[in-house]
Design a protein around this nucleic acid. Structure first.
Lengths: 335, 335
DNA sequence: GATAAGGGCGAGAGCGCTCTCACAGGAAGC
DNA sequence: GCTTCCTGTGAGAGCGCTCTCGCCCTTATC
């Protein structure tokens, strides 16, 4: 087996002519080893091509070097992943922080059915902690009870520490932006009720509606382009005079723009459309979507930083503001 | 510490009144334990809430339970991740297979600079194997030398086992499709030369150009919408009479459609556009893109299946065909 | 020069598990 | 009733590493 050929720390110690303890000290850059021996050990490491065995390290030290990322598909019909680049942004935000620490990233993409059991499993593992990137509040709370080292990226149970986007604030800002452009008959297309993000965006929309004295004209859809398309058609049927649409995600907004165009409405002249997420969909739509960008990378990085630091306060909540990205799908009304 | 409260297999054995060996047998569902003791052990496990320690398992058995997924950003300017849902599809294809085995997924998103060192690190780890989802041939070959349990999802050095999409065949089919629609002045927009996928698509295009006696009118761009947009403008400037464009990825194709529209060309009446990948961009563009869909999930699943089976043959290569997805960006010429 | 103090170093005990081996006890064969 | 062969079980030796001790040698202090 190649396994037996893998050099161990004992080999390093023998070659360097030191004890295993000293070799360990040098390898882990711990104090208590003289410069002379340090050099000898480093030499031996290089000569043998020695690489520490992660499993043995984890076992002996009890110090975990893994960050779990957990996503339970609760929103998207085709599973949590599919076409969603959100998770790519999450991972991209985390990697730079982990690179320095030697910690590694374990990804769990769970179906809703297998989630409960899998979470039990994960919570028992030796881990720096888990980042919940998509999960229902009930599952999050359950997981948090089993394992305290948890940070959520989505709004969940109040006890679970969270780095969340200000979805409500973003939705409020989006609608307010439309209002500021002179739009008054602003409709909304919301995401599925099971998604807490969608729920918060709904709240923000409602707040803006009340603030600006608008009518609450809303439709629901799954977070899909097709859903947005259909919802827009239905909305247009009931309210042919609408002059703006707030859409809870860009993918749906793409469908909305397509439906509006198909129905002979000009975007943005007749109807302004604002999306949410600033995903790749936003720039592919014609015209490119004005949207609310969430600092997903920053949130993910903050979550990892919290886990690495170790002092995780239950109930902690950081709110990350959404930022308006103006493109061409919004503007003042023109006839 | 909560750590000391975590029950061990010895606790289970004691509570069940059996030896550690028997407890281990039952927990691992190994033969050689009677039904009576099995029940007692299971009872003890449930009572204590025992969960095996992964690190200890890995160390004692030497049997790895981790699959590494490695992506080195060599193509995309904003890093390998960013807006690319490709990796989501890769992970989605893998998860179902791993779920049953208890193996876990470790993701490494490396910058091109840190890649070499990180690959050394990873290759030394105890792992079922690594799936290379984006990497240069040189790095892949180097990694393969260090660690035999490797499967690539992109075309790389010939020795590295690979589950790759038939990029050349897909490009050939795409151009042939355009030709079949009656298009004769077909331009191409290729991806960056460093990407082996882009290179293969280029080859397929060239093959089709030769087969159908077309002129080789090509431009290069990064795999971005902006790149596609600019390349299309340049192409249109040099060849104002082109009647079709083969674009090496959907995101670029989105830019191409936008450029064509901005220049007063109708898609598909004046110019047909065909993309590649069937990513989310394809359905957001107006008109929705005809594109070549790659069975990414299947490829990823096949890679994992190979790693799990263990018999990885150097040089093995499975080719997965690309499938034409017809939408509205292609059609016969109309004036 | 004796004692104290301190830092470098090695011995060795685990970490929690797997797995080999030896052994007990019962069934089968002569 | 003896040997032979199972099959079920337990003892115990590691897996490769970390980390606590305690030893020893050096340096400071009187």
């Amino acid at each position: 087996m190649s396994r037996s050929k893998q050099p161990t720390i004992d080999d390093v110690a023998r070659v360097a002519g030191v004890s295993r303890a000293t070799a360990s000290r040098v390898i882990n850059n711990a104090p208590g080893a003289s410069g002379l021996l340090r050099a000898r050990v480093h030499e031996a490491v290089a000569e043998l091509g020695y690489r520490p065995n992660e499993a043995a390290r984890a076992l002996a030290s009890g110090r975990p070097r893994v960050v779990d990322v957990i996503a339970v598909s609760c929103n998207l019909p085709g599973g949590w992943l599919g076409s969603n680049p959100y998770y790519s942004r999450v991972l991209a935000g985390m990697m730079p922080l982990l690179e320095g620490t030697g910690a590694q990233l374990r990804v769990h993409a769970l179906s809703h059915e297998s989630a409960a059991e899998a979470l039990d499993e994960i919570s028992a593992g030796v881990t720096l902690g888990a980042v919940l990137s998509d999960i229902t509040p009930a599952l999050a709370a359950r997981f948090h009870r089993l394992c305290r080292r948890v940070v959520s990226l989505v709004p969940t149970a109040a006890t679970v520490p969270a780095m969340v986007a200000d979805n409500a604030g973003g939705a409020y800002a989006a609608v307010t932006h439309l209002h500021g452009l002179g739009r008054r008959r602003i409709a909304a297309i919301h995401g599925p009720a099971i998604s807490t993000c969608a729920a918060d965006r709904r709240i923000g929309h409602l707040r803006a509606v009340q603030r600006w004295g608008l009518a609450d004209v809303s439709a629901d859809a799954g977070f899909t382009r097709e859903g947005g398309y259909q919802a827009a058609l239905a909305l247009l049927d009931r309210h042919p005079d609408l002059d703006a649409v707030f859409v809870a995600c860009d993918l749906m907004a793409a469908g909305v723009v397509q439906a509006l165009t198909a129905c002979g409405r000009r975007v943005p002249e007749d109807v302004s459309v604002i999306g949410f997420d600033d995903s790749v969909a936003a720039i592919c739509v014609n015209p490119p979507l004005t949207t609310m960008r969430l600092p997903v990378e920053e949130m993910a990085a903050a979550a990892v930083r919290l886990l690495l630091s170790g002092d995780i306060v239950p109930g902690h909540r950081s709110l990350f503001p959404a930022e308006l990205v103006e493109r061409e799908s919004t503007g003042a009304p023109k006839s």
